[in-house]
Structures are given as C-alpha cells and as structure tokens.
Simulated scan of single mutants.
Amino acid sequence: MRLVGGLAALACGLILVGCTTGAPRNTAGQVTATASINPFQITLGDCTGPMKEGDIESLQVVPCGDKHNYEAYAVTKLSVTTFPGEAEVTKQADKFCTAEFRTFVGLAPKDSKYDMFYLYPVESSWAAGDREVLCLAGSTKGGVTGTLKGVAK
C-alpha cells in the first residue's frame, strides 16, 4: 500500500510491519483518542495526523474534533483480479479520489486550499488481497478541526 499526494505529488511507501493496536472508538465507530494504527485499520471518516515521506509502519489517527491533518472521505475497491501495474492503479485512484473530493469538499482539488491524498495497493499488498483505495483530504500544515465535508474552500 502506498500514499500519494494528488497536489503535492508526495509519494510515501507504506510498509506494514511493526505492532500497532486498534484505535479506541465509540459505538458509532468514531476515534475517541489519538492512537497509532496499522494503515489498513483506517476507515472512512477517520482523521489522521501528519503523513511522513518514506516508509510508514503506522499512522496516527486523531479524533476529528481535535486538530488534525487529514480526513478519510471516500473508499473504493478496485475490481480487476490481476495487478494492473502501479501506473494503472494510481490512474484509477486519482480519477476516483478527484471526483469524490469535489463531491465531499465542494470544489475540485485544483480549486481548493486543501490537499488530496490517497492510499492505494502496490504489487506486494495486492498479492495479499489488498484492492482498496482510500482518499484523504486535508493539509500538510495540520490545524484542521472537524470535517471538511461541504467546506467549499
């Protein structure tokens, strides 16, 4: 699984090693306290801390009411059975996340002050069954509070 920034073109590899525990969540599934989790544990609506460039063993989730960097706003599963190559996966991920960003934030990524990032499967995670693309909106500078849904900024 790899993280790519749509506007900043920041690429971060996700190496899924190390021990992480799940995030504390309420009955609605919302994160209730900051925690370090495996990137595969991020769910739609979760908010995260900063993303590091390079290999990532875990990601920090943060309650969305607290200051955070990104919010997971859309998710899809790629339908092809054979790994189509990283270029094709990123093409599909970018197309999906760009369309969903417009719906979620209210503006196209190129017109927004917020950045679009996405997690997508790479060949090694594909072999393990990973087909998920997870889209994130936010700011590398942090300071986002609450949801970005409908902010149109």
Rank of each mutant, 00 (worst) to 15 (best):
V4T: 14
L7R: 15
L7W: 13
L7P: 06
A9Q: 13
A11Y: 15
C12M: 10
G13F: 08
I15P: 07
V17K: 12
C19Q: 05
C19F: 09
T20I: 05
T21R: 15
T21Q: 15
G22V: 09
G22R: 05
A23Y: 01
A23L: 01
R25I: 07
A28G: 00
G29D: 02
Q30F: 06
Q30G: 04
Q30R: 12
V31M: 02
P39T: 13
P39H: 06
I42Q: 05
T43M: 10
L44C: 00
G49K: 08
G49A: 09
P50G: 05
M51Q: 02
K52W: 00
G54H: 04
D55E: 13
I56C: 03
S58N: 02
S58I: 00
S58R: 03
L59W: 10
Q60H: 07
V61Y: 04
V62M: 03
C64Q: 08
G65N: 14
D66V: 02
D66Y: 01
Y70D: 04
E71P: 13
A72G: 04
T76M: 15
L78F: 14
S79A: 09
T81C: 02
T82L: 00
G85K: 11
E86W: 05
V89I: 04
T90Q: 14
T90S: 06
Q92F: 11
Q92K: 12
A93T: 06
F96H: 13
C97E: 11
E100W: 12
E100T: 12
E100P: 11
F101S: 10
T103Q: 03
V105M: 01
G106Q: 05
L107A: 11
S112Y: 07
M116R: 05
F117Y: 11
F117A: 11
Y118M: 06
Y118T: 05
Y118H: 06
L119D: 03
V122P: 00
S125G: 03
S125T: 10
A128T: 09
G129P: 04
D130V: 07
R131V: 01
G142P: 01
G142S: 03
G146N: 14
V151A: 09
V151H: 15
V151W: 13
A152P: 10
A152N: 15
K153N: 15
